[in-house]
Design a binder for these strands. Structure first.
Lengths: 350, 350
DNA sequence: GAATGTAATCAACACATGTTGACTACACCT
DNA sequence: AGGTGTAGTCAACATGTGTTGATTACATTC
């Protein structure tokens, strides 16, 4: 019945000694064990646990438990440093959704950089593994996933982790939580067309939005003019949109409207137009996609297609959890609804 | 020398059997063990490891290793759901810095919601613990840390985790990575004063910026007028800044300049002024703090005090790592340099 | 009163690993 | 040839836990 003074770690044995019982009994009490314990003894054991501030050794438990695999750690693979997209306002809200949903479902999130995994195979093999993470969210733009030399690492990830989902384009047919980029682009462009615009430039990032842009034009009997399209940097959309807009204006061929791939580009385009003395929407109309928080706060307020960013993050987590037990290799992707938000930059309110 | 067919988990024993040696030798090879192994035997063991795809059991290793404590998981405590600040553009970049630096130093990040810890003591006791995390970053605004009823949980955190740092205001004298908010406010306000403004309103969030605002006025022999100050919501600075600006204008007492606590509020204030027919900077000048990415993209471009957001995140991680071995309970805080960025919203360029 | 059953407890095993005392075989030196 | 040292290997122990076969004590039944 002696309290061992200043032992660094308290074990079940210590508790057993203190309570004057065998170690097994302590284990029974802790786990509502396979054997019964008399109420009196149980009380004594609990008191001893309290008194000694006993805390089960996590590793010993899991060792005994069998399987070293963890059950509640979700890995997120993003571009990392050289290609960091986490600081984009868009992913911003996606992340907030991921965090909140993970908290709620008692899941933990761990971040991985795709490029670091690529550079350091030892790290990759040790960490992107069922022993370390139970699920994986791939937050990788196509420009990364489709680069030659990047395929093998992706294959390995997919082979190793069963519970996996994409938050950008679907990779290798994996399920994804996405919105229809082509449809979003279609909505934004068609809106401009309905307002009478015929010369609609496009600051593009990806092919899908390009598809939507093209389809909207063709369905409305407008020509698809490649010279009106300019490609943006995905890493710095604002800076490159600003530059591209200036260059476009310098050609002298000023469009009556510009559709930009995201709000950051839209805001930058407005700035460029403003700096050249052109008014939005009077001289040039603007629409875009995303509906980031500041879209409604700039002047003119941005007409844009709202994407449920936060919900995308939340669904991604929920999707993973729900799919953990079920073995359906071809689970369907989840396409979230989008909505055109008409504000001032398109000129519809005039 | 038989390859056991279809065993679920491969152990050192399996490798030893396969290679025709004892298990100890396998352990020696894996850890460059305390005993030497002949080159030939080593080769055979390595081949067996490869062949059987052996992977050490993490939990057994750590159990043997002693101490259940982890060494490379950094917990970040934020407000969470009802008080989520992770989706603010400011914290956005701080986070990016945290991630990048953590990756580089082979550390992992785990997020905790302060309110969830508050609600669920069982979860709190199990997870905010040296067995689960090695370090802690407190990303909690004063409004949370100073709320009655929140003290105990903070005390427990601080008591349990040795390696701890604040990324907002310092709590209980803990080291913090911060910038001088008062100094930043002072710079922004003094700039307006030097441009001749005498009626400078203030959309405020915290006391420190208020201090800087007050000091700038007093040092320049201007009256400190409480009626020019309005308090913003820290959760939705843009929306509340927009509202407060409109209300301010409705009183008829229009200031010649407004200093806003952060860029989001600044952008919203410009919007409100614009919507009431006032021009920035001609009718009302604006300065603020943060220098978020879009600050330079709106028109007029925002004059603001740049805060090294990304570096704050990076330093926080580096600070933790460097302090891990050293037992200095009163480590100094780290105050990062700030810089006034003059653009168009203040009118200095006219 | 003897046999049977049951509740409560304990000693011992198993989990996969890292380390140490002991043992063997062989090279080297005198 | 005999003694000494060492490289290489193995059996055995230890880590802290969950579980099971065995044991004890006691109540119940015939």
């Amino acid at each position: 019945m002696n309290k061992p003074n200043e032992k660094d770690v308290v074990t079940q044995q210590d508790v057993a000694d203190y309570a004057g019982v065998s170690r097994a009994v302590v284990s029974y009490v802790l786990n509502n064990g396979p054997r019964k314990v008399s109420a009196e003894t149980r009380q004594r054991v609990i008191a001893a646990i309290e008194e000694l501030a006993y805390r089960p050794n996590k590793h010993a438990q899991r060792l005994k438990q069998g399987s070293a695999a963890v059950q509640n750690i979700i890995g997120i693979v993003t571009g990392g440093q050289s290609y960091n997209i986490l600081n984009r306002p868009y992913y911003n809200l996606v992340l907030a959704g991921l965090f909140d949903s993970a908290h709620q479902l008692n899941q933990h999130i761990r971040f991985f950089s795709f490029f670091e995994a690529l550079k350091d195979p030892v790290f990759f093999n040790k960490n992107i593994h069922p022993d370390e993470i139970s699920s994986l969210i791939l937050l990788l733009p196509k420009i990364i996933t489709e680069t030659p030399g990047h395929e093998e690492i992706l294959d390995t990830m997919i082979e190793r982790i069963d519970n996996i989902i994409c938050l950008e384009d679907s990779i290798r047919g994996l399920p994804a939580v996405i919105f229809d980029r082509a449809a979003a682009a279609f909505m934004a462009v068609e809106h401009l067309i309905k307002l009478g615009h015929q010369q609609i430039a496009f600051l593009a990032i990806d092919d899908q939005r390009k598809q939507g842009y093209r389809q909207a034009l063709l369905e409305n009997n407008l020509p698809y003019d490649e010279t009106l399209i300019r490609i943006l940097s995905a890493v710095e959309p604002a800076q490159s949109a600003y530059q591209q807009t200036l260059e476009m204006l310098e050609t002298g061929k000023t469009p009556t409207a510009i559709f930009t791939a995201n709000d950051e580009a839209g805001i930058a385009a407005i700035a460029a137009l403003h700096d050249r003395g052109l008014r939005v929407p009077d001289d040039v109309a603007i629409t875009s996609i995303d509906d980031i928080e500041l879209a409604s706060m700039i002047r003119p307020a941005l007409t844009t297609v709202n994407v449920p960013k936060r919900r995308m993050g939340m669904y991604a987590i929920q999707f993973l959890i729900s799919q953990r037990e079920i073995l359906s290799p071809h689970a369907a992707s989840m396409v979230l609804p989008i909505e055109l938000i008409v504000r001032d930059s398109c000129g519809a309110r005039r």
